Amino acid sequence: MSKRQSQKYKIDRRMGENIWGRPKSPINSRPYGPGQHGQRRKGKTSDFGLQLMAKQKLKGYYGNITEKQFRRIYAEAQRLRGNTAEQLIGLLESRLDAIVYRAKFVPTVFAARQFVNHGHVKVNGRKVNIASFRCKPGDVIEVREKSRQMALVLEALESQERDFIDYVDVDAKAMKATYVRTPDFAEVPYPVRMEPNLVVEFYSS
C-alpha cells in the first residue's frame, strides 16, 4: 500500500483550490499557497506549468494514486479507442475506491481506499480489498454485513455534503451500489475545474 507523506489538505493549499469541495479545507480561509512565500504575487504560468498543475490536481483528487500508477492509467487510456481525456476519466471513475466514494459509503476518497483495503467491501458477492480494482458496468458493490454499523458509513450516507450520481445506482438502505455505466467527463461531479485535456498534453509533450 503506497503512502502519501503530506497531509491531504496540503494538496488544496498547493493547488490554491478546494479540490474535494470540503467545508473543512483550509483554502476556504487561507486562499493562498503554503509557506512564507505563499502570499506573494505569482507571475504568468507557462504552458508546461499549467499542464503539470492539471495533472497534479487530477491525480491528487483520487487520493493515494502514485505517479507510476497514474502514468499506467494514462497509458491504458491512450490505447483505448476514442478521446484519451474521456477514457482517462472513465478509467479513474471505474476504480473500486472511486465508486465506494461516489456511493457515499465513506466521506472522502482517502477513507475509501482504506475502507476497501481493510476488507469492508464486496463486489458481486466476493470480498475485494484492492482499491484499484477495475469495476465493470453491472457490477454490484456493497458494504459487508459486519461493517454496516460503522459510524463512518452511517454518517457518510446521511451527509448532505455530496449528492448521489446517475452512473452509480445506490440503495442506501441495503448499502449496495450498482456501477451502471462508465461516465462521460461532463457527468463527473468535480467541485473544481478539471482539465484532463491538459493532462494528455502533459504526457504527450
Rank of each mutant, 00 (worst) to 15 (best):
V199A: 06
A98N: 09
Y74K: 12
K104W: 00
R13S: 15
I11L: 15
A172Q: 09
Y179N: 01
V192N: 12
Y203V: 10
P31S: 12
K146W: 00
D184T: 02
P196E: 05
H120R: 09
S205R: 15
M53N: 06
Q149I: 03
Y61C: 03
V100D: 07
V153Q: 04
G21H: 13
M175G: 02
S132I: 09
Q78N: 01
D139V: 01
K176P: 04
P26K: 09
G33P: 09
R144L: 10
E158M: 01
Y167E: 05
N117P: 05
H118M: 08
E195C: 04
P34D: 14
E187K: 04
E86K: 13
D12S: 15
K10W: 12
M175D: 07
G138K: 10
D184R: 14
V109F: 01
T45N: 06
L80C: 13
D169L: 09
R181I: 05
V200P: 07
R72V: 02
Y167N: 10
S204A: 14
R22D: 15
N117F: 09
A98D: 04
L80F: 06
L52Y: 10
A54Y: 00
S29R: 15
S94W: 13
R102E: 13
Q160D: 13
D184C: 09
Q7V: 15
T66E: 11
T178G: 07
N124R: 13
K122H: 12
V168M: 08
G82K: 11
K24A: 04
F105N: 02
V168R: 06
K136E: 12
E158S: 03
V180Q: 08
T108E: 05
N83G: 09
E67S: 09
I11M: 15
E142D: 10
R126C: 05
V123D: 05
V106E: 02
R40I: 00
P183V: 04
V106I: 05
N117G: 11
I11S: 14
A186N: 06
E86T: 13
Y74F: 15
P183T: 04
T108G: 09
K3N: 11
Q160N: 13
E145V: 02
F115R: 05
I89T: 03
R126W: 00
N117S: 12
P34R: 11
G82F: 01
V143C: 00
G16T: 10
V153C: 04
I99H: 06
D171Y: 13
F185N: 12
E145R: 00
P137G: 10
D12F: 13
K122F: 10
V106K: 03
K68P: 06
I11V: 15
P189L: 07
Y190W: 14
A156R: 02
R144W: 11
M1Y: 14
R126S: 11
R162I: 08
V121G: 10
D171I: 14
A77Q: 07
V188E: 00
P196C: 10
V200C: 02
Y74I: 12
Q36G: 14
K59Q: 01
E67C: 03
A151P: 03
R113I: 06
R193F: 06
H120Q: 04
R40W: 03
M15D: 07
V199L: 07
E67K: 06
M175K: 10
V121I: 15
G119H: 08
P31N: 13
E142S: 13
D139R: 02
D139T: 02
V200Q: 03
S147Q: 10
I165L: 01
R148I: 04
D169E: 12
R22N: 10
V116A: 08
P31A: 11
I165H: 00
